[in-house]
Design a binder for these strands. Structure first.
Lengths: 220, 220
DNA sequence: CCGCGCTATTACCGGATTGTGACGACACAC
DNA sequence: GTGTGTCGTCACAATCCGGTAATAGCGCGG
């Protein structure tokens, strides 16, 4: 289990690293948000919101792109500006300096427990439907042995459908799982991506059927 | 574990309900604070603070009367008036629209952990009558193993009848449950849909009987 | 800063689904 | 058998929904 510590104060950082290593984690430490993004992917990020560089939002967003990466925000007491509050809300959890090792470890455990499902899915090996093969690990796809290139959203969407071959997946559920919003905006975004996938899948055995008024289904 | 969604925007509410159901919760949805109080007790209440009616304080107080009921406030971004801030402080937690499903679920989990430790299981909603199988989750239907395609209204109607096999379901109740209007317009709409269903069910063991002057009954 | 690929949004179209009302058939009571 | 009211059937209209393509916006790397 890999933990990334993003902290510019050397003294604090050294203490954290020692404690975490002792607890059995593989620990990396960086001082800037730039390096933080580069160090991904890891399982847990301890992100100090008081870093001098970067506005934080960007880091969070980029770290979030890797599913299964949990973020714990670290803030100093009294550092309650709007920006920090917002960032804290974007993290999976937060701790306030100064904090004890026991509390920190407990929060890491809790966060890991909560994101276990997402991480397991992220490492789910291979989905096969008809001549279609999806490798969740490398996010690559093959159709009848020929590799096809899928964009991020296309892959997520197709993987979701492929995880329930033959079953109808409702539009609401798709939007929920792929776009991570709870409701669908009044736009044709989903349809557009379905169209792109159909194009790439071509006239193969596997195809995406639409179930009017409900959602889509992958048959092969 | 029962969750009550108090939300007046239909689109938002539907998305929320879908996401929560998928996560295994028993979900109820109401649009007004009045109905919210009536729907109690539940385990968690998602309370939209932007509702047009009621002043909110009263709702919170009444919901709180039932111990063990957690309240998560839902606010729109920028809706930072004094009233809202106060209400938010009175809730166990709050989320700001638009929020991701993962975040919402995590907060619900956290709140539940704080208030209780029990958890419940969700049951697979599958209806069986004779050779007919209705899967409410995928909204798919099978007749003697053969999948049959039903439109939305057809599915809703058949599911309602199948939920009370052998029992007569009154026209009024059907109109209420399937069309969500309290009285039947003087038209042949319901009959038309029954006719379509009979056509699709064919000469099978399961059939829709009409009970003159009352309603319909599904027998198999 | 620029360009490029990916994603989101928008307007429009066509077809499927749903609603409507006229009409006839049927059941039931007398 | 007749009357009354309910239901079935049908053709058509209204509406909903998803497909498509053009366009705008965003993130990312140069």
């Amino acid at each position: 289990m890999r933990v990334l510590v993003v902290e510019d104060d050397d003294r604090v950082a050294r203490g954290l690293v020692t404690a975490l290593r002792h607890a059995g984690y593989e620990v990396h430490r960086v001082s800037t948000v730039e390096d933080a993004v580069r160090a991904a992917p890891v399982d847990v990020v301890l992100l100090d919101l008081g870093l001098p560089d970067g506005d934080g939002f960007d880091v969070l967003r980029r770290l979030r792109r890797e599913p299964g990466t949990a973020v714990i925000a670290v803030t100093a007491r009294g550092e309650e500006r709007e920006r920090v509050l917002g960032l804290r809300a974007g993290a999976d959890d937060y701790v306030v300096k100064p904090f004890g090792t026991a509390e920190l470890l407990a929060r890491i455990e809790a966060v890991l427990r909560r994101t276990r499902t997402a991480r397991a899915e992220a490492s789910a090996p291979v989905l096969r439907v008809g001549g279609l093969t999806l490798d969740a690990g490398t996010r690559s796809a093959e159709l009848d042995g020929e590799p096809i290139s899928l964009t991020r959203k296309e892959f997520d969407l197709l993987a979701l459908l492929a995880s329930r071959p033959g079953e109808v997946v409702s539009r609401d559920l798709i939007v929920d799982q792929v776009w991570h919003t709870s409701w669908e905006a009044p736009s044709r975004t989903l349809d557009t991506h379905v169209a792109a996938l159909r194009q790439k899948l071509g006239e193969q055995r596997v195809r995406i059927e639409t179930v009017r008024g409900v959602g889509y289904r992958l048959v092969g």
